[in-house]
Design a protein around this nucleic acid. Structure first.
Lengths: 195, 195
DNA sequence: CGATAAATTGAACATCGTTCAATAGTGGAG
DNA sequence: CTCCACTATTGAACGATGTTCAATTTATCG
């Protein structure tokens, strides 16, 4: 219930709108109550973020294409659609925290791994010879690339929101680049094996 | 002088450490003085960010390689070196602002365009047939990709700081992907022209 | 020197996260 | 039903923060 209210407030007005007093008012309680259920506000917002990441995982899961390359593009489209639709929630997930939250609970880290695993699976047909570690790096890089583009184009930061930047076009360009890069790597590996 | 102090404080402890009273104390003045020179703290931090971006521009400018591909990799290295060395300042540049700073002054936008132009120039030899607009999209995408990787690996956000992620390796992988992607695009264009 | 302009002050206000003794509510045992 | 242990909730408080502004100090120049 508290998480519901906090999620709604973050989605509407960002983390600054999700302050203790507003959340409490939204559910008909007082600020003190929140601290009986969460260590502090960051803890609460982290639960909201976990939900957001789960939403992204679901969005990525709904992309189904037979061709591996089309599958990647579909996932990129789903990614952009999700982050633009929930861009306040998404921004909250990447807000720098005043004090780096030292302890990262296992359930939270598992949540973060889930969308990464989807991407890693989607990359598998494109680079069958690669090791698991190589594929993880490729998946992380690809996720980072998508994330960076969305941040630059739609971010609310002091740098973000560069105008006239077509996010979908940029993301598809990068996906094509990753596909080409993996193909080149595979070709290089074949050449190394049978010279 | 105020900007100097604010920059030092942000570099040490992030934007939360650069509050009005600390900045004032650092220069031997009182909080009120700051508001005679800047509209508000965000305005001040934006000036700090502009300096940071100028620093990145300088860092990217110092990369000089004859081979275009090596040039890109050198710039990526310079990018990573800069953002890790100044990662508090860099994080401040991408902090989501409570209220989206509506008016973006011309001088500030010019500052943001400078590193992008460097990247755009470096991409030119790799895709000579492309239009200026295509190259801008490619440069923006590449910048976004680098930015996203660094954010994921070194970010202090609720998602960032995924462990065991080697940023340099990821960035070089992405650069190779962009190179391969541009080569593929060039090849496709040639095929289209002389079938 | 004296008057006008500019810069600086310091106290105040509102808002925020957070704490905690006091209070209200709940669910069984006798 | 009564009482008691326990839990949940409260609301007032504290400290820190961004910001304002009349009063005061400092600088400038005729």
């Amino acid at each position: 219930m508290i998480i519901d209210a906090a999620e709604r407030l973050v989605a509407q007005g960002g983390t600054s709108a999700a302050n203790a007093r507003e959340i409490a008012a939204a559910i008909g309680y007082t600020p003190g109550t929140i601290y009986n259920h969460f260590a502090n506000l960051d803890d609460l917002i982290r639960h909201v973020t976990a939900r957001t990441v789960d939403g992204l995982t679901a969005a990525l899961s709904s992309a189904h294409e037979s061709d591996p390359v089309r599958q990647l593009h579909a996932m990129a489209d789903a990614y952009i659609a999700f982050t633009t639709k929930n861009h306040r929630l998404w921004a909250a997930a990447f807000e720098p925290l005043p004090k780096a939250s030292a302890t990262r609970e296992a359930w939270y880290r598992a949540t973060l791994e889930r969308p990464l695993a989807l991407l890693q699976d989607a990359l598998k047909p494109l680079d069958p010879g690669a090791s698991e570690e190589e594929r993880r790096v490729a998946a992380l890089s690809t996720w980072g690339a998508l994330h960076g583009v969305v941040t630059l184009v739609e971010g609310d930061g002091r740098i973000g929101r560069l105008d006239a930047a077509p996010a979908p076009e940029m993301v598809h360009f990068l996906i094509d680049c990753v596909v080409a890069g993996l193909a080149a790597r595979r070709k290089a590996a074949r050449r190394g094996r049978t010279p």
